[in-house]
Amino acid sequence: VTTYKLVINGKTLKGETTTKAVDAETAEKAFKQYANDNGVDAVWTYDDATKTFTVTEMV
């Protein structure tokens, strides 16, 4: 189990959160659900070296 981080650069929601998951795909599903629940529709990137997902909402 690995800890993954999500950085949110949204128009109305900004911040960071983490989740523990067995792999990046599982973490991504959890983070996308979190973003969807909070109304963030954005572009996703992932950095495997830092285990960090970044979501940037387009203006």
Rank of each mutant, 00 (worst) to 15 (best):
I8C: 13
D48L: 04
T18Q: 08
T52R: 01
A49N: 09
V59Q: 11
F31S: 00
D47V: 03
E28A: 13
K32P: 00
A49S: 10
G39S: 07
V7H: 04
Q33T: 08
G15A: 14
G15S: 13
Q33S: 08
E25V: 10
V7R: 04
T18N: 04
V22W: 08
Y34T: 03
T18H: 08
T54G: 01
T56V: 08
N38P: 06
G10S: 13
V59D: 13
A35Q: 04
T50L: 05
D23I: 02
K29P: 01
F53V: 01
A49T: 11
N38L: 15
E28P: 00
Y4P: 01
N38G: 06
A21Y: 04
V59Y: 12
K51C: 03
T50G: 03
M58W: 11
E25F: 10
T45W: 06
Y4K: 01
K11S: 12
T26V: 05
F31Q: 00
N9L: 13
V1N: 08
G15I: 15
D47K: 01
D37Q: 13
E16A: 08
V55N: 01
N9C: 14
I8Y: 11
Y4L: 01
A42H: 08
D41V: 12
M58K: 12
N38Q: 13
Y46S: 00
K51E: 01
V55I: 13
D48Q: 08
T2L: 10
K5V: 08
T45E: 10
Y4V: 02
K5S: 05
A21V: 03
E57K: 07
D37R: 11
A21E: 03
V43D: 06
L13G: 11
E25L: 10
D37P: 07
N9P: 04
N9Q: 08
T12G: 11
T17D: 03
D37T: 12
A24G: 03
F31I: 02
Y4N: 02
A21S: 04
V40L: 14
V59C: 12
M58I: 13
E28F: 15
F53T: 00
K51W: 04
N38W: 15
T26R: 05
A27D: 00
N36E: 13
A35C: 15
T52M: 02
